[in-house]
């Protein structure tokens, strides 16, 4: 067993009758990563996720989680160590938000006051005011709110690993983007190992530290979002990335501060953009304003540099 891998799959296969859903998969997921599985329907990405918490057993191969072979672990104890969020939220309709979030701590036998404190903390973390939401039932929540509660429930017992099966798939684009940002913000505080399944390439590129592209139960490419965009291994990955939009997708991963030029003696351009914005946003602003030069500022509006349109065409400066 190697040092840092939080999750390791070794030659894992799963058959359903004659169909091979997962075919000799080997993969390492490091601690603190957001590993996103992407592929078309039926490519085996959800099956792989369910193999990790033993909702489905492997036909062959081994899965190691945090230095332990899952085959040797009791499945319900293993699952209580892994947060689990799914597309349809799976919230218990007969329980209030409070009880839904507190379910895993209760299974683990936490005392009532500790559960209550944890529920408060999580509702705050997910921007749901405690007093408004704690006594609501799932049927009284909007889709986005229900999914936030689903994520809170997954985080409740502070697991090291979070499994998320298309958690934002059923939400409208605006809510989905808000929750993606929320997840990234939360992850910057909690540093979990997250395994995330999606069929939305933009979601994958936005969230992932590494992307696993799957097809017919096999891994086609396992790479960082940048490498996936720059060096897709075959036409399947190219198609997945959407041929015509690749430039824009890559631009949305690149940050303005990595491309800006030092401030010159000349006056500052009138149009400004924040240093943390993506190149895609910068390009969009240029196209919209018909401008070829932007001023780059930090969050406090202090000028840091300039961004001429030609700088977008350079390869990454740093």
């Amino acid at each position: 067993m190697s040092d840092a891998a939080m999750i390791e799959l070794r030659n894992v296969s799963r058959q359903f009758g004659d169909i091979t859903a997962v075919d000799k998969l080997s993969l390492r997921i490091e601690k603190g990563e957001i590993c996103v599985f992407i592929g078309t329907s039926g490519c085996g990405k959800s099956t792989t996720l369910r193999l990790l918490n033993k909702l489905i057993d492997c036909s062959s191969g081994e899965i190691w989680v945090d230095g332990e072979d899952v085959a040797s672990l009791d499945s319900k104890l293993l699952r209580r160590r892994m947060g689990y969020a799914i597309q349809s939220t799976g919230l218990f309709p007969h329980w209030t938000v409070e009880r839904n979030i507190g379910v895993v701590p209760r299974l683990l036998g936490w005392p009532a006051d500790r559960i209550d404190a944890r529920v408060r903390e999580l509702l705050e973390l997910l921007s749901l005011p405690y007093a408004t939401f704690v006594h609501k039932f799932p049927s009284q929540l909007s889709g986005g709110q229900a999914q936030r509660v689903g994520v809170a429930r997954a985080l409740a017992a502070d697991p090291d690993i979070l499994l998320m099966d298309e958690p934002f798939g059923a939400l409208d684009p605006i809510t989905r983007e808000a929750l993606q940002n929320e997840l990234l913000r939360i992850q910057s505080h909690i540093h979990k190992t997250i395994v995330f399944v999606t069929h939305d390439i933009d979601e994958a590129l936005r969230l992932a530290t590494r992307i696993v592209v799957m097809d017919k139960g096999r891994i086609v490419q396992h790479d960082t979002p940048e490498n996936l965009l720059n060096n897709p291994v075959n036409s399947f990955v190219e198609d997945l990335l959407g041929q015509g939009e690749r430039g824009l997708k890559r631009a949305s991963l690149e940050r303005v501060e990595d491309f800006m030029l030092p401030l010159g003696a000349a006056g500052l351009p009138s149009l400004s953009i924040e240093a943390g914005s993506s190149l895609r946003q910068a390009l969009s602003l240029m196209l919209w304003q018909r401008a070829d030069l932007l001023c780059v500022r930090d969050q406090a509006q202090v000028p840091l540099g300039i961004l001429p349109i030609s700088a977008l065409l350079q390869s990454k400066s740093s």
């Binding site: 909702l55 319900k76 689990y84 799914i86 218990f92 309709p93 299974l107 997954a154």
Partner: peptide
């Protein structure tokens, strides 16, 4: 989905 969630979070 409710049943899957119940199993997935570790209920016996």
């Amino acid at each position: 989905s409710t049943l899957e969630a119940a199993r997935g979070i570790g209920m016996s």
